[in-house]
Design a protein around this nucleic acid. Structure first.
Length: 782
RNA sequence: UCGGGGAUCGUCUAAUGGUAGGACACCAGCCUUUGGAGCUGGCCAUCAAGGUUCGAAUCCUUGUCCCCGAACCA
């Protein structure tokens, strides 16, 4: 039985499942919220696939929402490019919306905040605000305006909007907590003055909301259920929730018409995509464009969707790549090889095979007349076994070209191509033998005179390889652009100056390539393979009828080149992850152990218990853990009173097993009582029930309370230890898993745990594990 | 001397106390009129140390390392 490939649901979909099951939401609503200040890149593609993908999986909706709250950086050019790229990737937004359309409503809610005493106008400039914000380890200090009255704040905020004040004169801030450990909560800015033209609202506004204010409100207006962003916003989540609660924002009816809206939106963070040898910073990408280091946002070497599209990547390949890398919270850097794999895998299946020559070397057939052709299928047999995907005629003439690379005067070992005196096969045509080489003055071959060798193999000729070729008389001249990675180093983002990490060979223009005529007949946008060379597409921007310009999308996998380049200069080892200067100076966290010590120093009762319990047969480690806080300590004291002889077991259960059931709650907040816990532990300690049953019971006591002894009796949970009772169970499990029995006997002894687990489950947790182990082992080895 | 996150094959990612799985990469073999594709096999991981448990990647403890946070950016 082939085990089907398992891919567990990612953590976001797990959360969505739970929210749907719990009734928190009936409808899944997500959004993709780019700021229109640059072109979308492959990192955004991941976000798009997550946002739109989850909505699609659950029959929900996903809005494209421009987060256009900073007029100084944004532009309609980007707005248009973004929607085009999203649609090209294959996703249709449920709605296309703009945060700037919510400005009036946001302003209204800001006034509400002021009225509630939760926001104020601050006259400090940015330097003063910074100085008053404190540091990671020191609290902030209030600025003079912090305690102004509501009426005055309202008036001043209105003045900000009215336009009388210059940029930077004042800001609106939330009044939260200047001492908050989370810097984002130290009275964050809500609005700033910007006398700037907005690409959409024009000059209607001169105050603009900040991200932390605009984003949660936009989500709430649209009735978003799950708001997914990247890891660096984890600190913003607390503020996100604050804004939604403080403004008491509700969905806008127009935006959620016809669908149920459940609980307020919640933010979830996922790792952003990092790709080695790739730059993701929009700012640095913009520099590349502005400095003319690339031909534009859609330069085929750019990691932008526009660039990849022009290069010839397909949306299917990019989506497959996003599936491949998954969604998680680990900081990770994906190997670009995975992207390349996805592109090749997609193109392999869809691209017709044609012939073309990059650097032509003339071959004259000495025993072939002229004007012939060869019929060649467009796809190899493994992709088209029924031969239904078409064929074309390839001109075959006396004068041909092969690629210069495919000929060597002195072939190195392992060179399976043409050389003087050798025979090779021409793809889809006859074999030829190189009888004569004509050289130029520099000693370079300029013409090979070859004879066609009919039925070479049948005559026992050694055929050294198969070469691509093209007719010299009927081939089509064209320009071909060969792309390599734009950057030379694994982490170009880390470089101060991008110029230093640019790969000087990222673009090679081959002017004199020749391809078979069929290439020119392909519908625009068709990706095709030139056999043995890679995948190509006509450049959509610069190709003209009669002046073909081809982009190489990607090379073929090439095990020959890999073998030859093995000793090559790939000396760039991953840059040592230079520990940031900051992390060195960072204070260490106060450890939990220290906190317990401090608690005892402050609370004499805890200290007294600590000393007293040291005399018990419990162990110093456990006593330490039991006396770090009152809740735990009280519980142990109470259970100890009920069952003084069981101190050690009691301690273990409280320390090791209880936390899992409690979660964040204190014992007193649950249905669990000390007497019940003591009784439960007694049951386990005496062997009346198994540890497994004990844990199940504990979960129930925490949830609903009850008397363990009575529960055990009512459910018949007493431990079963006799081999007579357990034997049949073991036999049944083994019979049901014959294949695994075989594997076990074949040496896969790790399966023992599997069998024991199965028996334990079958017994409802009542079986004595030691007996089961024994029984299983004996049965397996019988 | 703070707050928030994260550590599983070289890489990405599963396994919610019961077989550490998949993919990419790599290596070998088969096949091949693409040094492609395909097929088969192989190498390879739970950050460390203790503890609880019949059984720990998973629960408890201690420690280590990494990322983010003090824009009128998003």
């Amino acid at each position: 039985m082939a085990s089907e490939p398992t891919r567990g649901k990612d953590f976001l979909r797990t959360i969505v499942d739970e929210d749907l099951a719990a009734g928190r939401h009936q409808h899944v609503a997500t959004r993709f919220p780019p700021e229109p200040n640059g072109y979308l890149h492959i990192g955004h593609a991941k976000a798009i696939c997550v946002d739109f993908g989850i909505a699609a999986d659950y029959g929900g909706t996903c809005n494209l929402r421009y987060d256009d709250t900073n007029p100084t950086k944004e532009d309609v050019e980007y707005v248009e490019a973004i929607e085009r790229d999203v649609r090209w990737l294959g996703f249709a937004p449920s709605r296309v919306l703009y945060a700037s359309d919510y400005f009036e409503e946001m302003y209204r809610l800001a006034c509400r905040l002021i009225e509630k005493g939760l926001a104020y106008v601050d006259d400090h400039d940015d330097e003063q605000i910074k100085a008053h914000r404190g540091s990671l380890t020191e609290p902030g200090r209030p600025s003079p305006g912090r305690d102004r009255g509501v009426a005055e704040n309202l008036e001043r905020f209105a003045a900000m909007r009215a336009g009388a004040l210059p940029d930077g004169a004042c800001v609106l801030r939330a009044k939260i907590d200047l001492g908050a450990a989370n810097m984002k909560m130290r009275d964050p800015l809500l609005y700033r003055i910007r006398h700037a033209h907005h690409h959409r609202t024009g000059d209607a506004w001169c105050i603009y909301p900040m991200y932390d204010y605009a984003h949660p409100l936009s989500d709430a207006f649209e009735g978003i259920s799950h708001s997914i962003c990247t890891l660096e916003f984890e600190n913003n989540r607390e503020l996100y929730d604050w804004v939604i609660a403080a403004t008491e924002v509700t969905p806008l009816p127009d935006l959620v018409a016809g669908r149920p809206v459940g609980a307020p939106p919640r933010q979830y963070e996922v790792a952003r995509l990092a790709l080695d040898y790739t730059m993701m910073s929009k700012r640095k990408l913009l520099r590349l464009v502005e400095d003319g280091l690339v031909a534009g946002w859609d330069d085929p070497r750019m990691p932008t969707l526009a660039g990849m599209r022009r290069r010839g990547f397909t949306p299917e390949a990019i989506r497959a790549f996003c599936d491949l890398i998954g969604v998680a919270k680990n900081n990770s850097t994906v190997d670009v090889g995975k992207l390349e794999y996805a592109v090749r895998d997609d193109l392999n299946r869809r691209a017709p095979r044609l012939l073309g020559v990059l650097r032509p070397l003339k071959v004259t057939l000495t025993n072939h007349a002229a004007g012939d052709e060869r019929l060649a299928p467009l796809f190899p047999e493994d992709l088209d076994p029924e031969r239904t995907r078409g064929a074309r005629a390839v001109p075959f003439d006396k004068d041909l070209y092969i690629d210069a690379e495919d000929f060597s005067l002195e072939p190195p070992p392992g060179f399976r191509r043409l050389a003087p005196g050798r025979v090779v096969r021409l793809r889809y045509a006859e074999a030829i033998r190189c009888d004569e080489v004509r050289l130029d003055d520099a000693g370079q071959p300029v013409e090979l005179r070859c004879a066609v060798v009919p039925a070479a193999e049948a005559h026992g000729e050694k055929v050294w390889g198969v070469l691509h070729w093209v007719s010299a008389t009927r081939g089509v001249r064209c320009e071909v652009r060969l792309y390599d990675r734009l950057f030379d180093v694994p982490r170009p983002d880390a470089a101060e100056d991008v110029r230093t990490v640019l790969n000087p060979r990222s673009l090679e223009v081959v002017a004199g390539a020749v391809v078979e005529p069929h290439v020119a007949a392909l519908p625009a946008g068709t990706r095709f393979q030139l056999e043995r060379l890679g995948y190509f597409v006509a450049d959509a921007v610069e190709a003209r009828p009669g002046a073909l310009v081809l982009n190489r999308v990607i090379t073929l996998r090439d095990s020959w080149e890999k073998a030859t380049a093995a000793a090559g200069p790939d000396a760039e080892v991953a840059a040592p992850a230079a520990r940031s200067a900051r992390s060195k100076t960072r204070p260490d966290k106060k450890s939990a152990a220290e906190q317990r010590t401090i608690a005892r120093a402050r609370d004499p009762e805890l200290a007294a218990r600590h000393d007293r319990w040291l005399a018990l047969d419990v162990g110093a480690d456990l006593v330490d853990l039991l006396t770090g806080d009152r809740d735990t300590s009280d519980l142990f004291a109470a259970t100890l009173a009920a069952a003084p002889a069981r101190a050690r077991t009691l301690a273990r259960w409280i320390v090791n097993e209880l936390p899992r059931e409690l979660g964040d709650r204190a014992p007193g907040e649950t249905a669990l009582t000390a007497t019940a816990l003591a009784a439960l532990v007694g049951l386990v300690d005496d062997g009346d029930i198994t540890a497994a049953a004990g844990k199940e019971l504990l979960a129930e006591l925490v949830a609903q309370g009850g008397d363990p002894v009575a529960l055990v009796a009512a459910r018949g949970l007493r431990q079963v230890s006799s081999a007579d009772d357990l034997g049949p169970l073991v036999a049944e499990v083994l019979a049901r898993n014959g294949d695994k029995v075989g594997q076990y006997r074949g040496g896969k002894t790790g399966l023992l745990g599997f069998f024991v687990g199965q028996v334990m489950k079958a017994s409802g947790g009542k079986a004595n594990p030691a007996t089961v182990n024994d029984l299983v082992k004996r049965a397996l080895e019988a």
